[in-house]
Amino acid sequence: MADSAAIRSLPGRTHRAEAAAPLQPNPLRLPTAKLLPWLLPTLVIVGWQAAASLGLVSTRFMPAPLDVAAAGWRLAQTGELWENLWVSFARAACGFLIGGGIGLSFGLANGLSNLSEKLTDTTLQMVRNVPHLSLIPLVILWFGIDEGAKLFLVALGVFFPIYANTLHGIRSVDPQLIEMGRVYGMNRRELFWRVVLPGALPSIFVGIRYALGIMWLTLIVAETISANSGLGYMAMQAREFMLVDVVVLAILIYAALGKLADSLTRALERTCLAWNPAYRNA
């Protein structure tokens, strides 16, 4: 699962670099180039608003963008939006840190030690093949609908991509560089910090980006099924009262949060992987 992510996401990057390259450094074209990605979403929203205003779609099932914005404003005024947003964000962040931390630790341990890999890798690969969302009934039995249930599911979901990509990254560090480090007198500690970890970092980042996607997905499902706060809960409550605008608002917020997390990771990649031509700011 995570390995296919590694393969899929790297060519995507090179495509971006190639696409950006032919652009002339023309000062007039620069703002256009920056705005271009937003053209399609803008057109969709405008078209949607027009369709709703002209009565082409029933606002009972698909509210107009302005209604969604109004709902957002209303909920922001009452503070309900911020409270739920914060609760969801805290759950996502905690689950990600716990699961990602454990995944990173196991990835590093199994990448560096054959004994550790022999002991744990087969078990982890078996657990990995269980869809973590299928555990929801069990998790509800164990934790109820408390915070523990959500944290457990998110942590479990983000664990595997980070584990698999960290392991893959360490395994694929150029053995010639490791030999060079040894010959040039680096001890194990130096070898890890100066050769192995930087070499594994691009792969670890692929794992992080993939895990962020799984993080939101898991959280939405968990909050929708069993929660008494958070964005997913907000959407489910709204459904009961037929507040379609709030449902759509929640979905859009999820999209925005996902995009935000992805942008943050990209910025981090550009700083940490500036040496790699594939990640340099085009």
């Binding site: 150029d174 560089l177 060079m180 100066r194 050769v195 930087p198 070499g199 970092l201 040496w275």
Partner: peptide, 10 residues
């Protein structure tokens, strides 16, 4: 060595 074997990140 035959290859430069430079650390790409340094």
């Amino acid at each position: 060595f035959q290859e430069p074997r430079l650390l790409p990140w340094a």
